[in-house]
């Protein structure tokens, strides 16, 4: 058990932090929702009603989709784009999907390689892209969830202010949908771009996200 906790500390601590933050979001979101209800002359709702509302759902999903979009773009973007000097980038001469020798694929697989790296055909093609496929799938699923919950929350708001509700397709053209979507995308793109460039010049001793403290600024793909 101690060994499991030690070996999985990163995944466990972040998962626990996620649950605590989600709990905090539920409490703050409920209070914020009710203060708006009161200011509109409507009745406040219970925590149970808030947690089963599309208003809570859309607030959760809009952030999830942008995180998975970020990972999808980063995983795919770093195959083809480099940032000279960044530990987040591969070396400029390695641009592209690289050779089977470098990637330990097919007959170049090691005895300890995952079976699907060696087997060839569709299974190796799928496994070779599985990280991007899962991140992309989660992005599409969470963006869809955002659109459906956002649509329901938008219509509830429209009805409470005596305006016409819209269809799901209609909601995809509404400013509310794109405001929620793009405010999350812009922050992810800024954070990733600035991080990739900052890590050329800045160091965090001991972090695999950083180059070694004494590494040259021009050293690319040299993680500490």
């Amino acid at each position: 058990m101690r060994r499991f906790l030690h070996d999985n500390a990163l995944g466990l601590v972040f998962g626990l932090g996620f649950l605590l933050a989600l709990g905090g979001q539920a409490i703050a979101g409920h209070a914020d929702f009710n203060s708006q209800q009161i200011s509109h002359g409507a009745e406040p709702i219970s925590m149970g009603a808030y947690l089963t509302s599309s208003s809570f759902g859309v607030d959760v999903a809009e952030n999830w989709q942008s995180e998975y979009l970020q990972f999808l773009l980063y995983v795919l973007g770093t195959v083809w784009l480099v940032q000279r000097g960044s530990p987040e980038s591969k070396k400029p001469e390695d641009i592209g999907t690289e050779s089977d020798v470098d990637q330990l694929v097919g007959r170049h697989a090691r005895p300890t390689s995952p079976a699907w790296a060696r087997i060839g055909g569709v299974r190796t093609a799928l496994y070779s892209n599985s990280l991007g496929l899962v991140m992309g799938g989660l992005f599409l699923l969470s963006w869809t969830a955002q659109s459906i919950a956002g649509w329901a929350a938008y219509n509830a708001d429209q009805i409470s202010t005596r305006q016409d509700p819209t269809t799901w397709l209609g909601y995809l053209g509404e400013a509310d949908f794109w405001n929620r979507t793009l405010q999350n995308w812009q922050s992810e793109l800024l954070a990733v771009g600035s991080f990739a460039v900052a890590a050329v010049y800045l160091r965090q001793r001991g972090s695999p996200e950083s180059k070694p403290v004494g590494a040259e600024h021009a050293d690319t793909a040299d993680t500490g």
Binding site: D7, L12, G15, V58, A61, W64, A152
Partner: peptide, 30 residues
């Protein structure tokens, strides 16, 4: 690595169930 595989499956399951829950809330017009 059995425990790690379990953690990976737990993460994916929670994410997919969470998103399914949000989709159902929206589809029901809650």
């Amino acid at each position: 690595m059995t425990g790690t595989r379990w953690l990976f499956v737990l993460y994916l399951t929670l994410i997919v169930l969470g998103l399914a829950y949000v989709i159902v809330l929206g589809a029901l017009g809650r």
